[in-house]
Design a protein around this nucleic acid. Structure first.
Length: 455
RNA sequence: GUGGGUGUAGCUCAGUUGGUUAGAGCACUGGAUUGUGGUUCCAGGGGUCGUGGGUUCAAAUCCCAUCAUCCACCCCA
């Protein structure tokens, strides 16, 4: 087996023309909605300084960073002792000071700080680029995948959250994907941790709560116990996890009973109440739900958190995001809050492909192909082609004089709509034989008639 | 990092309780049809059965190791 003669790293993919047409349809749909809400595009490099990336995504995230090896003799400055220690994590900084971006949000925060005097706040940008994670690939999980991020930075207004929920709603409506949108506020989770006396264990608690739907209360409690959360705290958590009722009822219970002693928790509740008040007035395709068990693992979220999932296919989230208050602070710019969401183009593709959501008419291919009959005919066809292309018709001439059968087969494989045959007879009469590849019908017409027909 | 499945032609897969020359469909090449594709018919090329070792008279088939890949968990888009 010639396995390594032609291959790509695991978790990466090639995209064939047929797939690219569909991918571009997704990107175009997303970009159109982003721009309709006043967001403008930026791009950042594939690689960032390692210091920009590390420490932003939690322990798990750091482990999944792709690092780029330094150039030159990077071991020259490393002492023998350090090498003999064989501690990769310690050596990393000597071996590598760059990494591939893990998401688009952290590079964006870096971008904002770096270009402070070139941008105006609130700054609304969108960014559609690949990101890389050294994860184990599986269904809906790739090592290289495209994120479509839309963020606004430098505004505390809740309108931004409202707007981004509208964007999510609009995009999935346009793509024809049925979703559920879940919303929560990290401050509520923090408040809960606070009132049960485990404020410092906020992260393991939220992660455990997040699994509530998947693995059930019993296992969640087990996991929290393993993580060192006291029995008393776990007991106090139970009525909170079992909260029932409408959004208002849940939020009221949280505000008036559970989070009485947590200022920050009540602040989160207040935000949620106001957010849902706004949302009620909108005519959304999908009504977002308040989900106390939504936690999200990324470290940098501090307020609202949002996630969208397919309801037709079991795959990871299609879209996720939230508000981050301190992200630019890490790069030296304090008190600038941002909120943004990220769409996973590859998972959206997977859902659309599986559920047959792509419109029929998006395939773009050559409209007209000239059969190659030889040198004299080639020159004649080239001038015809120039005229035809002026009318914005996609046209090509088969480059080799091979059997017509082979040329027709090429046109057929490529789904070319029409084939033009111009041989000796046609040249003499100044006509073109035009064949419709779908019906098989043929007609002898002039160049003008052909252009008229295909425009 | 943890657990499970699968590796046979370019692709998708058959291959009987181990048995002699390893098959099919699709794709490819040629022909039926030298100015006509998608249908049909005929012919052809293409395999160290993932790799290494073991058991056996005999291994694609059984055992061990290893690599690759897919799936689940974790985490995430």
């Amino acid at each position: 087996m010639a396995k390594n003669e032609a291959s790509i790293p695991k978790g990466t993919r090639d995209f064939l023309p047929g797939e690219m047409v569909k991918r571009n349809y997704i990107f175009k749909t997303i970009r159109t909605v982003f721009e309709r809400f006043g967001y403008l595009p930026i791009e950042t490099p594939a690689m960032e300084q390692a210091s920009t990336l590390t420490g932003k995504y939690g322990e798990e995230g750091d482990r999944l960073l792709f690092r780029i090896l330094n150039s030159g003799n990077y071991l020259a400055d490393v002492s023998d002792d350090e090498i003999l220690e064989r501690n990769v994590n310690k050596l990393k900084t000597s071996l590598s000071d760059k990494g591939l971006r893990y998401d688009l949000t952290v590079p964006f925060a870096r971008f904002v700080v770096q270009h402070l005097n070139e941008i105006t706040f609130p700054f609304k940008r969108y960014q559609i680029q690949p990101v890389w994670r050294a994860d184990k690939p599986q269904k809906g999980r790739y090592r290289e995948f495209f994120q479509c991020d839309v963020d606004v930075i430098g505004s505390n207004s809740l309108l931004n959250e409202v707007e981004q929920i509208q964007i999510i709603d609009e995009i999935f409506k346009n793509l024809g994907i049925r979703i559920i949108i879940r919303i929560n506020d990290r401050r509520i989770l923090f408040g809960i941790a606070e009132v049960i006396g485990e404020a410092d264990k906020i992260i393991p608690i939220t992660i455990a709560i997040d699994k509530h739907d998947k693995i059930g209360a019993h296992k969640v409690n087990e996991e929290m116990a393993v993580k060192g959360i006291s029995e008393k705290a776990i007991r106090e958590l139970q009525p909170i996890l079992g909260l029932t009722g409408s959004v208002e009822e849940k939020l009221n219970k949280l505000e008036n009973k559970i989070l009485l002693r947590s200022r920050i928790g009540r602040k989160g509740v207040d935000k949620m109440k106001r957010l849902f008040d706004y949302l009620k007035t909108l005519d959304l395709e999908v009504n977002p739900v308040f989900d106390l068990t939504l936690a999200r693992g990324l470290d940098y979220y501090t307020g609202t958190i949002i996630e969208a999932n397919s309801i037709e296919m079991k795959i990871g989230s299609l879209c996720g995001g939230g508000r981050y208050d301190d992200l630019t602070g890490i790069f030296g710019l304090n008190d600038v809050s941002g909120v943004g969401v990220s769409f996973g183009a590859d998972r959206i593709y997977d859902v659309m492909e599986k559920k047959d959501k792509f419109p029929e008419d998006i395939t773009s291919t050559t409209t007209l192909m000239f059969v190659n009959f030889g040198e004299k005919e080639e020159i004649h066809c080239l001038s015809l082609l120039a005229e035809i292309r002026k009318s914005e018709i996609r046209a090509e001439l088969f480059p080799d004089k091979v059997k017509i059968k082979k040329q027709m087969n090429y046109a057929n494989q490529k789904n070319v709509e029409y084939v033009a045959l111009v041989g000796e007879d046609e040249m003499k009469n100044g006509l073109i034989t035009l064949k419709n590849m779908k019906t098989g019908d043929q007609e002898l017409i002039t160049l003008e008639e052909l252009i008229e027909k295909l425009s």
